[in-house]
């Protein structure tokens, strides 16, 4: 009897949490497709004729060159740069580090680990000063470099863990075939690491896509802002037009969720392996 009861409660908890997780997304999409007048009249009603114009309004909203489309492009530039920097720098380093003698290895690890505990709040103002000095404010790609570097420690540690466990037989086989170290890395190691690289990359992607603390400071002018910052002012642009506001929220929230669903296998694996994105 208690076992049945326990099952019942655990199922209830599981279903309850699932509802709590999904309902906001449901409402964002419900309101996003609903005519504003009906949101006011009957917010919970699910029978209505969809107002797709909400989406075009939201998409074209914003002043001048700072529409959602522009924010999306900025987000892609920022996130893309962050990925190139973090993976491009950290993956080879993480691989070759496994060959270092134990002492040097530990030193590398400690330094990189220290990099993971620096709080963003300490960085924001100096970043801002430096970027300003070099005329790099309001450039999504330049901001993306900062995001990329901040993701290096985590990327490095996760990739290093992976490479430590990499089957040595393969490397040795490559060596016997007369391949150079670099070739072994490029031809043998990289192709077999795609899964891990994708899951680590996605963690960086999620973080850089959503963060606003650094972007709000480095990307001041609105036409340079990514969606995470642009959304902050977006909600204010449509005072009573809730339909458009929620359509905007849908546009901002749905693409990463869809991307995640497609790649969820890698993400869940990456995280279960202990991946912690900054």
């Amino acid at each position: 009897m208690p076992r049945v009861l326990g099952k019942f409660f655990s199922n209830l908890g599981v279903l309850g949490w699932t509802a709590l997780v999904l309902l906001p997304f449901f409402f964002i999409m419900l309101f996003g497709t609903k005519p504003t007048s009906q949101i006011y009249a009957n917010p919970l009603g699910v029978i209505y004729s969809p107002a797709w114009s909400n989406f075009s309004n939201a998409w074209n909203a914003g002043a001048g060159d700072s529409t959602m489309g522009v924010w999306f492009i900025n987000t892609f530039l920022l996130v893309g740069t962050a990925l190139v920097v973090s993976l491009g720098v950290a993956v080879p380093a993480a691989y070759f580090t496994i060959f270092l003698p134990p002492k040097a290895n530990r030193r590398v690890m400690v330094t990189v680990l220290a990099g993971t505990v620096v709080p963003a709040i300490l960085l924001v103002i100096p970043f801002f000063k430096a970027y300003n000095q070099f005329g790099m404010l309001n450039k999504p790609i330049a901001a993306g470099v900062a995001y990329g570097v901040l993701a290096i420690p985590t990327t490095f540690l996760l990739m290093n863990r992976f490479f430590v466990d990499f089957p040595r037989e393969i490397l040795e086989a490559g060596l016997l075939d007369g391949l150079s170290n670099l070739r072994i890395f490029r031809r043998l190691v990289l192709p077999l690491s795609v899964g891990q690289i994708v899951s680590v990359g996605i963690l960086t992607l999620i973080w850089a896509w959503g963060d606003s603390q650094i972007a709000i400071v480095l990307l001041q002018s609105q036409e340079s802002q990514p969606i995470s910052v642009g959304m902050l002012s977006f909600a204010g642009d449509f005072t009573t037009d809730l339909g458009t506001t929620f359509a905007g929220l849908s546009i901002a929230a749905i693409p990463p969720v869809i991307l995640y669903i497609i790649l969820s296998k890698y993400v869940t694996k990456g995280i279960a392996l202990g991946g912690i994105s900054k």
Binding site: G64, D65, F128, Q222, G236
Partner: peptide, 12 residues
């Protein structure tokens, strides 16, 4: 043109 938000115009 270059747009600046209400939040940013008096600060950053």
């Amino acid at each position: 043109f270059s747009a600046i938000t209400n939040e940013a115009k008096g600060g950053p």
